[in-house]
Design a protein around this nucleic acid. Structure first.
Lengths: 163, 163
DNA sequence: GAATGTTATATAACGCGTTATGCATTCGTG
DNA sequence: CACGAATGCATAACGCGTTATATAACATTC
C-alpha cells in the first residue's frame, strides 16, 4: 500500500483534498439519487432548490446562488431545460435577462425531493460528519475514513459509533 | 445579493461545497506558485512530492498516492514528462509497469519548492484555517469567508485574528 | 438621438476529474 | 507449454468547473 501524500502533506494539499472529498461525496450522493429512480444529476439540484426558495431567477442570479460562474450556470440550466424541469423567458423589462422558473414537472420533482430524497441525503451526510469536531484536517481524515468504511448510500440516521 | 443556497442547504450540498472550496483554494494556491515564477501546476505537485518521498513509483502507485484514478495519473505524468520533471522507464522485472522517477530538473524543483514555496503555501492555509475548530459546516463557512476577505496569496504566517 | 460604454447571456476552448474500453504483458492452471 | 484470466497502462469520451470572448440589449453622454 502506498502512502497517501495528499493526506500526509496536510495544509499544503488542502485544495486537492477538499476537491477529491467533494467529488467522492457527490458521486455517492448521485448513487442515492439513482437508487431512488430520479432522473437528475446531483449537481443540478442546487439550481432547482434556489428557484424553489427564491422564485424565478436569472442566469446570473443562479450562478451567484450556487456559487459558480455564469457559463457554468448557462450550461446546467440548458440541461434542465432539455429535461423539462425549468422554463426560461426574457424578463419583461429587460430583454437581456432570462428568468428561469420551475415547470410543473420541476416543482413536482422538488416537492418530492424535499420529502423523500433530500432528508435522506442530509441524514446520511450528517451521519458521516455531523458529530465531528476539532481541527479540520482531523475531520477530513475522519470523513475519508468514514466514506471508505461505509459509503453514503448505506448510511441512514445518526447511529451510535462503532469505532 | 442572492442567497447562497449551497451554504444554506448545509449537509445536503456538502459535496458541491467541498468541491467549490477546494477549487477556490487550489486556484489561489496556483497564484502563489505563479507569483514565485515556477512553471508548474498546483495539481502536479503531489505527484512530484510522492516520488520525492517514496522513490520511483509506477503509474498505478502514483494514482493511489495522490488519490485519483489511473487515467488521471497517466495524463498528469504525461505532462510532467513533457516538462522534463520526470522520467519513465519499464520496470526491469515486469514490462507492464512503468517506473516514474524525478529528473535532475525535477529534483531541483522539488528541493527548491520544499524550501521556498511549500512552507509559504502551508503557512497561508494554516493562517486561513489552522486555528479553526468546531462543526465542519461552521469551519467551511469560516474558510469561505476568510478567503473572500483575504485571498491566500496575501496571507503569510499565523497572525492574531482581526474579526 | 447617435455614438459609446456596460451588462446579461451564450459560446468556445481548456483543465482535470471520471468511467469504459483496448492492448500488451504476466500469471495460473490443465 | 499453451491458453484463459488477471494486471498495468493508454486512450477515448464525457462531466462539470474554469477563463476568454462574442453578441444583443440597455444606459449614458454629448
Amino acid at each position: 500500500m502506498v502512502e497517501d501524500v495528499v493526506r500526509t502533506l496536510g495544509f499544503l494539499c488542502m485544495g486537492s483534498r477538499l476537491r477529491r472529498i467533494g467529488e467522492r461525496l457527490q458521486s455517492d450522493t448521485q448513487q442515492v439519487i439513482d437508487e431512488a429512480g430520479l432522473g437528475i444529476q446531483a449537481g443540478q439540484y442546487p439550481f432547482l432548490a434556489a428557484i424553489d426558495r427564491s422564485g424565478p431567477l436569472t442566469i446570473g442570479e443562479l450562478a451567484q446562488a450556487v456559487g459558480i460562474t455564469q457559463p457554468g450556470a448557462t450550461r446546467t440550466i440548458g440541461q434542465l431545460l432539455e429535461l423539462g424541469f425549468v422554463d426560461m423567458q426574457p424578463a419583461p423589462d429587460d430583454q437581456r435577462r432570462r428568468l428561469v422558473s420551475l415547470t410543473g414537472k420541476g416543482q413536482d420533482l422538488v416537492d418530492h425531493s424535499k420529502m423523500v430524497i433530500w432528508p435522506r441525503i442530509a441524514a446520511a451526510v450528517a451521519d458521516l460528519c455531523g458529530d465531528l469536531d476539532g481541527p479540520i484536517l482531523q475531520q477530513l481524515a475522519a470523513i475519508e475514513d468514514g466514506l471508505a468504511a461505509v459509503p453514503l448510500a448505506r448510511r441512514h440516521a445518526a447511529k451510535e459509533e462503532e469505532a
